[in-house]
Nucleic acid binder design. Structure first.
Length: 270
DNA sequence: ACAGTAACCTGTTTGC
DNA sequence: TGCAAACAGGTTACTG
């Protein structure tokens, strides 16, 4: 999926188009995503004005006076601003129709979701227990250090856990561990504060740089105009198994951790 | 509370 | 060339 940078790029892209705009219609073409899209939004959202577009982790929130639409892009989702006359492509599952365009959700794998709550969305079951935002001041080495004591999972799985910290997916976890020189299989509970200082810095640097590049596009991701992000050309290890390490030139190794590929340098990451 | 695994989907790439 | 298996940006639900 879209990890945090891609979701934030999407948020920034759609906000100026839909802010203060009135939804004229809701179109559900395929309701069966990760969870069924609630049909009630067809009536609830009609004539509602978008008051703000916010983000929590990888969730996008479209806020109206009547309630909050919670969107997640899953592994393959993207949102775009589509002209009314533009063709509906396969996997265009959902539209919010405005006067001059539609906000259109495209998601081939359907791991994304579109949910609705009338209450404070931060209290929604899926959002209530999320960890801190990685680019916020709450996300510190001390926080990671303390919350990892007695945890036996590998440090890579630990930082990919959204209840620990949101927004860090497979690409950026892989890249940040390389930047920090930390072996991805090291037990989270045995990582020193010094190492977590390096890791928190690396996570912030990698995410901020990806944001500057418009995100990472491997195949599916595109911004609200349908354009890719360019951080992929700066990836140091992700997708580069067998290629020489940028630092020591030894070939990069590849392993599986919780069914996810991890690429790393045996020499530079300890 | 924690750890490990299966599950939800389709499309593309890889291997025989 | 054809077919099957493996793999892909995520995260919840379930089991022990």
């Amino acid at each position: 999926m879209p990890e945090l940078p891609e979701v934030e790029i999407t948020r920034r892209g759609i906000e100026p188009h839909i802010y203060n705009q009135t939804i004229t219609q809701v179109v559900i073409r395929q309701s069966q995503l990760r969870w069924r899209i609630p049909k009630i939004i067809e009536s609830e959202l009609a004539q509602q004005v978008i008051q703000s577009v916010t983000r929590r982790g990888k969730y996008l929130l479209l806020n109206t006076a009547r309630g909050h639409l919670i969107l997640h892009l899953g592994m393959s989702g993207s949102l775009r601003i589509a002209k009314h006359e533009s063709d509906i492509r396969k996997h265009d599952h959902f539209d919010l129709v405005f006067n001059d365009f539609s906000l259109r959700l495209h998601d081939p794998r359907r791991f994304g979701c579109v949910l609705w709550t009338k209450r404070n969305p931060m209290h929604h079951k899926l959002l209530a227990s999320l960890g801190p935002e990685p680019l916020s001041s709450e996300f510190t080495a001390e926080y990671l250090y303390h919350s990892s004591r007695n945890r036996r999972v590998a440090v890579k799985e630990f930082i990919m856990n959204s209840h620990i910290v949101v927004g860090v997916g497979n690409i950026y976890a892989t890249e940040a561990l390389f930047m920090a020189g930390i072996h991805p299989k090291r037990t989270a509970g045995n990582v020193s504060l010094q190492r977590y200082i390096r890791l928190t810095k690396a996570i912030k640097i990698v995410l901020n740089r990806a944001l500057e590049c418009g995100g990472t596009t491997l195949r599916d991701f595109s911004n609200e105009q349908g354009q890719p992000g360019y951080f992929s050309i700066e990836l140091q290890v992700y997708g580069r198994a067998g290629q020489p390490c940028a630092i020591c030139r030894n070939p990069l190794a590849s392993i599986k951790q919780s069914q996810r590929t991890t690429t790393y340098c045996k020499h530079c990451q300890k």
